[in-house]
Amino acid sequence: MTARLGERTSPVRRIERWSLPGLRISIGVVFVWFGLLKVTGSSPVAELVGAAVPWVDRGLLVPALGWFEVVLGVALLLGRLPRLTLGLVVAHLAGTFVVFVQAPALVMTGGNPLLLTANGEFVLKNVVLICAALVLLGQARERRAA
């Protein structure tokens, strides 16, 4: 719906208009930022990443993962290939939970999943990012169908 000349759009309409792009852009910024930290060797989670995938050399894995995150983040920022990008974002974020199986001591205290370490909290917040990406993915599918 478009506003008539002289009418102001309501705050609710503005929120509806900007919330999904804001969500997409904010996830994009997080992916670029965290990815660049990995690429530059400044990531505080490099040990966690290495422990999650111990069969891959951490010196190769962390920067490669960082570049992958940067590419996903830039694609989100540009709004390019939204269904593919968001699908990869969801898969990537879901993959972070492998650390609960591969290195539980880094994410839980005494093996208790209710007593998370700071690393465990960092990984668990990905549930919210996954849900946000799924909302955007659903919206992208709706748009395509329309």
Rank of each mutant, 00 (worst) to 15 (best):
G79D: 03
V70G: 03
L60C: 06
V56F: 15
A132S: 10
G50Q: 05
V99G: 07
K125M: 14
E142D: 10
V39N: 01
P44H: 12
A75Y: 13
L81Y: 15
P11I: 05
W55G: 06
P54W: 08
L124E: 12
G87D: 12
L86C: 12
W18M: 06
L88E: 07
I130H: 07
L48D: 11
V99I: 11
P113R: 00
I27V: 15
G66R: 07
S19C: 09
R141I: 15
S42E: 15
R17Y: 09
P44S: 13
L76D: 02
E142I: 08
N126L: 11
K38P: 13
L20M: 10
L116F: 09
G79N: 04
L84T: 10
V49H: 07
P82S: 05
F68T: 02
V128H: 02
L61R: 04
A105P: 07
G111Q: 03
G110H: 04
V71M: 05
F122L: 10
V39Y: 01
V29P: 01
G79C: 03
T9P: 06
V107A: 06
L106T: 01
P44K: 02
L116T: 05
P63M: 04
S43M: 04
L124N: 01
I27M: 13
S43Q: 05
P104F: 15
L77A: 02
N126M: 11
W55V: 01
I15S: 13
R141G: 13
G138E: 03
Q139S: 10
R83D: 14
V56S: 08
V101S: 11
E16Q: 03
V45R: 03
R141W: 15
V70I: 08
V135E: 00
I15M: 11
L106S: 02
L61N: 03
N126Y: 01
L124I: 09
W18E: 06
P44V: 00
L48Y: 10
N119Y: 10
G110M: 04
L48R: 01
G59M: 04
V89N: 09
T117I: 09
A103C: 08
V128D: 00
L114C: 11
L76T: 02
T96N: 05
F97C: 00
K125Q: 11
V101D: 13
W55A: 02
T9N: 10
R58S: 11
V45Q: 11
G73M: 04
P11N: 05
A133G: 15
K38A: 14
G87N: 12
F97G: 00
G110T: 00
G120Q: 06
L36P: 05
G87F: 07
V29K: 00
G22C: 03
G95V: 13
E69N: 08
A64D: 14
G50V: 08
A118L: 14
K125N: 10
V53K: 00
V98L: 13
E69D: 15
A103M: 01
L23E: 04
G73C: 01
E142K: 01
L60Q: 09
T109K: 03
F97M: 02
T117N: 12
T109P: 14
V32H: 06
V123H: 04
G22P: 10
G28W: 03
L134P: 11
L84D: 09
P54S: 06
G110P: 14
P21D: 12
L116H: 03
G95H: 14
V89W: 08
P11V: 00
R24I: 08
V98I: 13
